[in-house]
Amino acid sequence: MTLQIIASLRDIAPDAWDALVPEGQPFLRHAFLSALEDSGSVGPGSGWSSEHLVLMRDGQCRAALPAYRKWHSFGEYVFDQGWADACQRAGIDYYPKLLAAVPFSPVAGPRLLAAAETDGLTLLQAIPDYLSGEALSGAHLNFTDAALDRSVRTQPGWLERLGCQFHWHNRGYRDFQDFLDSLSSRKRKQMRKEREQVAGQGIEFQWFGGEQVSEAQWDFVYACYANTYLVRRRSPYLTRNFFSLLAERMPSAIRVVMARQSGRDVAMAFSLVGGDSLYGRYWGCLAEFDRLHFETCFYQGMDFAIAQGLQRFDAGAQGEHKLIRGFEPVLTRSWHYLRHPGLRAAVSAFLEQERAGVRAYAEEAKTALPYRQV
């Protein structure tokens, strides 16, 4: 077994990479990650430098860790800026660090791709020595799946961090009205009123697959996406070319819903489909309309999931406003290996308290759900 570093996915055949990716994981496919690289969304000037760890045997890729060398903590959605600030005050270098995550997408899933469990464990065990040899402060595995959680727990030095997201689950609903019937009367009326307010503004919706979206429409999608950052005086993470490359490389996973008023597009939501799940990723509008965000980002996705028989709708990170619309709290996990012993001890103590708080928050959040008591 030899450990190799892949600085660009151009250096590995798509079939060899995708052979390690489980079904239903669009964010880990060669097409998605290479579109980020080739579009310049990650790479020079972004603070994200591709540094994929690959375990080879007899010329065959046996395991891979999609990873990035980072010089900041933006676009991760597992917030460690406080750790970096403490290091700066103490004269400890926190950057660069190694991050295994899907850039700009807080989506849980496999982070360690392997042909066999033993291959994955071998790569996992190689990470601490790799960090030391490269003078990296630590490694961070964000939004992991249960299989990796089990493996990391067997290894010394890794610290567990919990987070909370809100996902909607399709419990065999026949249609949106069937879902509404599962809610308390007050919440059911509130959702119906929100949808009526949007329809009353003359706004209609149309869904597109990736192969159906024209370049002019991608211009509109990107303008909407970028505007969500520009109104906050921030630069968008993704480049315009990313959307075109992704549509070229994996169109079957893409779903875009356009909101139209008087024949003019006014808003959009961009999603990916994988396995039994719909992943809402980006949204934006070029004018303000009452309740349009809730309809475009939540109710349209729920309608689509029901119609397509999808079981789960992950509409993105955070957002307590999702609770009253039926999105349930779900715990997420990340794992952190910090080489500096003092930093590791301090973070370990902090995370122990934070885990208790996150669990308590998730339990309390359930009390805000709109479902009828049975």
Rank of each mutant, 00 (worst) to 15 (best):
W207N: 04
F179R: 10
R260E: 08
I254F: 13
D219N: 15
E204L: 12
A253K: 00
D265A: 12
Q197G: 00
W283D: 07
A247V: 11
L230R: 15
R264P: 02
D178I: 08
Q197N: 14
R249N: 13
A226P: 05
F179V: 11
P236F: 11
R233H: 14
Y225T: 05
S262T: 13
A253E: 11
D178G: 08
V213D: 05
E288R: 13
Q177I: 03
Y237T: 02
A259W: 01
R234E: 15
I306D: 08
G200N: 06
D181F: 09
D178K: 09
E248D: 15
L245P: 04
R232P: 06
G172H: 12
L238P: 04
L292A: 02
A287N: 08
T296G: 05
R291M: 15
V256P: 02
R260H: 11
R195A: 01
F270L: 12
Q300F: 01
Q261M: 09
Q197C: 03
I203Q: 10
L278W: 01
Y237K: 04
V256W: 01
G172T: 00
E295W: 03
G280E: 02
T296I: 02
M302K: 03
W283P: 02
W168S: 04
F179T: 06
G210M: 05
G274T: 00
S214Y: 08
K187W: 05
K187M: 12
V257S: 01
Y282K: 07
R255D: 03
I306T: 05
F270Y: 15
L292R: 01
R188Q: 15
A216M: 11
F176V: 06
Y282I: 06
L183R: 11
G172P: 08
A305P: 01
R192I: 11
L272N: 01
L230P: 00
Y222I: 09
R291A: 10
E248W: 03
W218V: 09
Q212T: 12
Q201M: 13
A259H: 09
A226T: 06
K187Q: 14
R249P: 05
Y222H: 12
S182V: 04
S262W: 00
Q217W: 10
G280S: 09
G200Q: 09
R174V: 15
L238Y: 03
R188T: 12
Q177C: 13
D265G: 01
A223V: 00
R264D: 02
C224N: 07
A199C: 06
M302Y: 05
R233K: 15
I203H: 07
I306W: 12
G202T: 07
F304V: 04
G202A: 07
S235T: 15
M258C: 10
G301C: 10
Y173F: 15
T296H: 07
R281Y: 06
F304Y: 13
Y173H: 15
Y282G: 02
W218T: 09
Y229C: 07
C297S: 08
A216E: 15
S277Q: 09
A305S: 14
F294S: 08
A247W: 01
E288Q: 14
V257K: 00
Y225H: 10
Y299S: 02
F242Q: 03
V266N: 02
I254R: 12
A305Q: 04
K193Y: 14
R174I: 14
N170A: 12
Q201F: 06
E248N: 13
K187G: 04
R249C: 03
